[in-house]
Amino acid sequence: MKTLREVPCGQTVTVSKLNGEGPVRRRIMDMGITKGVEVFVRKVAPLGDPVEVTVRGYELSLRKADTEMIVVE
């Protein structure tokens, strides 16, 4: 099982599942990261965290710890 955390910059992946529960997960889903959506990993912040991704046509930033709950293929 590969998570979004392991995806290097510049790659596009498809979300297959979201692990975990609670507010952060709901927030991530509200922002459009749901099953089947394409996510492009755009860049990492200068200090290595958070990351910036493109999803559903806009830019979203996520902490690396939170990207672990996003399973991708």
């Binding site: 922002m31 830019e59 930033s61 996520l62 902490r63």
Partner: peptide, 12 residues
């Protein structure tokens, strides 16, 4: 509690 979620839009 958990640190505030940092799921933030970076607007154009």
């Amino acid at each position: 509690g958990e640190p505030a979620p940092f799921v933030m839009e970076l607007p154009a």
